[in-house]
Design a protein around this nucleic acid. Structure first.
Lengths: 352, 352
DNA sequence: AAAAGAGCCGTTAGCGATAACATAACCGCA
DNA sequence: TGCGGTTATGTTATCGCTAACGGCTCTTTT
């Protein structure tokens, strides 16, 4: 800890007027040069540019946005940034927005509806050009705000429900069903479920519902389940797996369905460490298709949630609507999650 | 894909005037109520609040910020969001800022200086109350902008160098030295280095410099090294480890130093899968101390980079400076990275 | 009872930019 | 020579909000 150099001149921030005076033209002309809009002679253009550079002028977008009522920001509201899935969605969003004038601004809700509402309010008060928000479940107030904002809204990740405007995602119910079907087809019977203790993770809930629905049709049900919250997901996966397996030694489970790949990976490592034959003795599957699984000793079965693609599609909807006022609203894009059998889920037993 | 409901009324956005008319008081009074500032009678307060709620009014911060020249945003400029380290820094920043009126806005540079410059320019044009930016290395133009912005600037992660204003971080050179010393003390001699192919990752470079410096003092040098870029770090860690070990079978390596925990974890899994005794035959160490290591079959040695703490401290500096104009500038906080021996690095051989 | 203060609310003048409309200079061509 | 048409620049009026100040009504004080 030490005292610094105190370089900052702390002078009044520069405005267009300063540049205009320095270059001997009107503010308007400076504005035109800086925005590359309207006709300006090459001579004044260079003169202005030079003056601006010399002074170190940085335009004030606040004033600009107020005057033009155009804000090139896109609000992106997501529950978390620390679980691999949303960073990938961001990647997709960025890919698309980099080709436009739009800039994403991220808000984190920590899966709390009231926090989401607050973040949304904050974001909307900056009058962004569009909103990308995770999930279809929001407080009434949040839905009302989005409905009244008069800007494109894209709800992402999930399409099982009613969207305020547009939506891009997968059907988590369908993802659950699909996985259940694959497990049943492979001949597994005693299935355990391991997930997070999060009543507000609607997507996990929907997957679970789809999953149990298909099991029920096959006259099966979840034999046992285990939930966690917080901590290292990998470690929790291990611990939960140990717990659930030990608890069912008398009538052993033959499949474990994890609500995300990270705990699935932990479970896989537990099984391998303890000489359990996967997928012989027991099959395993996760959800998400995170890249990280490639490095595991055995590839975990999973279902890809199309994260990057969702980000891209959502950003494209916003970009299109910003560019063309009359582009259609209420577009719903449902992506198809693809099942990856990996090396922990046996293929269909009898092809009939 | 389908047509939506078209709920959006697309009417002119609401302003203070609308609320003022609806509640029968002046705009100024509405503004006072909404900001909780100045004296307003309880009666009018509720009247205004009700009108605002009813209309669904959302204040326009653009106008507000312009009028008051106060913007409650803090620009956070970081290289990436997909590698576990910066999300944790964000956690620290958020923890502190949640207790204030300030809001973080994140910009991603992808480790490209010119991108960083562009992002910084964009951010500064919104006249934020402060800037938190990763690293001490920036383009000249970027440094000039920060120097002239007249707002608190905190450079984070690293303190080996000259800061524009304040800085919070660890000495990566020292981290490298410390790890080298521990490795030497444990008696390892033939040391391999595995890292990323990133000439612009200055912090990794500094760690490497510190590392080799201490080795040199002990008359040792890096026996071999291996670099990667892109892809699943876990998988790359495996592959690189296999490559470097095979290449040195004649005169085997006895230690591998990884530039991050993820590739280290991959290397660890490779060793375990192949029956290599860790840390007997070979010792391993990574860098960062990510939580995820807890779930590994054997705990990898690492060095904690104090990520959450860095975020907290940086945010605190900004918050303090925003609150009190005259708070000291140029504060430098150097945190001490702590070595975690885990189970892959033997303890000191002879305590002398 | 007059002065001083507190509480409540309105008026006016920007904040720093841009939209939209002049204006001026210059071109060519009838 | 004069008129339409560019091209290059300036002027004026906002954008929606807040700072600063002023004025009015009651209290409170001495």
């Amino acid at each position: 800890m030490s005292q610094g150099s105190g370089k900052t001149p702390a002078k009044r921030p520069l405005t267009l007027r300063d540049v205009s005076e320095a270059s001997g033209v009107s503010e308007m002309t400076v504005s035109r040069v800086l925005r590359n809009r309207g006709d300006v002679s090459e001579a004044t253009r260079t003169k202005v540019l030079e003056a601006a550079r010399e002074l170190g002028y940085v335009p004030n977008k606040i004033a600009g946005a107020l005057a033009s009522s155009r804000v090139n920001l896109v609000a992106v509201i997501i529950p978390s940034m620390s679980n691999m899935v949303f960073p990938e969605v961001m990647t997709g969003i960025n890919e698309v927005l980099e080709g436009t004038e739009l800039q994403p601004v991220v808000g984190i809700t920590n899966y709390k509806p009231e926090r989401e509402e607050a973040v949304l309010y904050q974001m909307l008060s900056w009058r962004p050009s569009g909103v990308i928000i995770a999930g279809l479940e929001h407080t009434e107030a949040a839905k009302a705000m989005m409905g009244a904002a008069g800007i494109p809204i894209v709800e992402i990740m999930d399409t099982d429900g009613e969207a305020v405007d547009s939506a891009v995602g997968i059907s988590h119910r369908r993802a659950g069903r699909k996985m259940a079907q694959a497990i049943i087809d492979a001949g597994y019977k005693r299935i355990g479920f391991l997930g997070t203790k999060m009543p507000l993770d609607h997507r996990a809930r929907k997957r679970f519902e789809g999953f149990t629905e298909v099991l029920a049709k096959a006259k099966l049900e979840i034999a046992d389940s285990e939930f966690y919250s917080g901590g290292s997901a990998l470690k929790k996966g291990r611990e939960m797996t140990e717990a659930i397996l030990k608890r069912n030694e008398e009538e052993p489970l033959d499949f474990l369905y994890y609500s995300n790949d990270m705990i699935g990976a932990g479970g896989l490592m537990y099984c391998l460490d303890n000489g359990i034959d996967v997928p012989g003795d027991i099959g395993l599957a996760g959800f998400n298709g995170i890249e990280f699984l490639d490095g595991l000793p055995r590839k975990l079965a999973t279902m890809d949630a199309c994260r990057v693609e969702i980000g891209r599609a959502a950003a494209e909807i916003i970009a299109k609507r910003v560019e063309d006022e009359k582009a259609p609203t209420g577009e719903i894009i449902t992506l198809e999650p693809s099942l990856d059998y990996g090396e922990t889920l046996k293929r269909k037993k009898k092809p009939l």
